[in-house]
Amino acid sequence: MPESRIPSRRGLLLGSAAVSAGALLTACTSNEPKNQAAPSAAGNAPVADDKPGKPVTIGFAGPQADHGWLNAINQNARDRAKKYADVTLEITEGSNDTAAQIGQIQTLINKKVDVLVILPADGKALTQVGLQAMAAGIPVVNLDRVFASPQAYRCWIGGDNYGMGLNAGRYIGEQLKGKPDAKVVELAGLDNLELTKQRSQGFDDALKNYPNITKVARQAAEFTVESGQAKMAQLLQAQPRFDALWNHDDDQGVGALRAIAQAGRKDFLMVGGAGARSAMDAIKADDGVLKATVLYPPTMAASAIDLARALGQGKGIGGMAELEIPSSVTLYSAVVTKDNVGDYLPTGFN
């Protein structure tokens, strides 16, 4: 699952929909615009739109798509690139081996692509190759898992892990605020990932606003169906009564729901995470414990293609006064419930 930085990354909030092609601002590999005439006002800056412009070759390198969310990342990138007649997408096979991914990115650098979009398997380990691309004059859009140095990318775009936990906690808090001595449990992801710590911290901070609620148990799973089922079974056995469950990841949530069904438990509400189509379908049906999911939208990959296209064309977007695209873009973790699930179903991933 993705790993991103927190508070400093949350300055610019976007919804779960991809950044439109008409929303990107003029930019280059540094913060100084080049090869463009100075506009008389910000509103006169060149603006990227759906009309064909300068051809741009975008290299896309991500980790192995061994998870529903990661597969959706690749698909969003491909689909967005197909929208533009002026974009050629060079996409790598994807690997969770850092040496292999570095080699793939170096191949794209040697091909002299115009822009790189990189979702690193390990941000720290791949920082050097990001620096190498920037030094070669190829602007880098760093997707989600952040490089260790801001010099390794021109723009970062990703999700808000702290905000994900915060919004899950707020939703649960509002559902249980009238219930005395309410109890909640948490099914987290991999504890060795910073993103898991951020999600848990956000959840805990939200619950501080609801003194009637106590978190009585937390179990870490591994973002897989199998681990979700096994760890949820342990939680259910250890906790004969609780009122709400927050599960960090909808993929492992499939296993959690199996364990819940096998135990015959219907006495609590469940909130998922990420925005899988299966979770949204269950929320829409409203016939089980799953009542909401907090988005970590894979549409960020489509937005990254928009940003890369604007960088390659030296253009920008409407809707902002600045001539440059921002250095970071953090997506908003919307809560999907039965009341708004119809709006988000098209973004659900398998």
Rank of each mutant, 00 (worst) to 15 (best):
R5Y: 14
G11W: 02
G11V: 12
L13D: 05
S16A: 13
L24C: 05
L24F: 08
A27M: 10
E32N: 12
K34E: 14
A37M: 00
A37H: 01
V47K: 03
A61F: 02
A65P: 15
H67P: 11
H67Y: 11
W69M: 10
N71K: 14
I73K: 10
N74G: 03
K82F: 04
K83H: 05
A85N: 08
V87S: 08
T88S: 10
L89R: 10
E93A: 14
G94W: 03
A99E: 00
K111T: 06
I118L: 09
D122A: 02
K124V: 14
Q132S: 08
Q132G: 05
G137S: 04
G137Y: 03
I138F: 08
L143W: 07
W156L: 12
G158S: 02
G158H: 07
N161S: 09
N161Y: 09
E186Q: 14
L187C: 04
L190H: 09
N192K: 03
G202I: 01
N212T: 09
N212R: 14
A217I: 07
A221W: 09
E222Y: 02
E226H: 13
K231F: 03
M232L: 15
M232S: 13
A238H: 10
F242E: 11
N247D: 10
H248A: 14
D250R: 11
D251Q: 13
Q252G: 04
A259F: 13
A263H: 09
M270P: 09
V271S: 08
G272Q: 15
G273L: 07
K284N: 06
K284C: 06
T293K: 08
P297T: 15
P298I: 11
A301S: 13
I305D: 07
G314E: 00
K315F: 01
G319L: 01
A321L: 07
L323P: 01
I325A: 12
V329N: 07
S333I: 05
V335W: 12
V335D: 12
T337Q: 06
D343N: 05
L345S: 04
T347R: 12
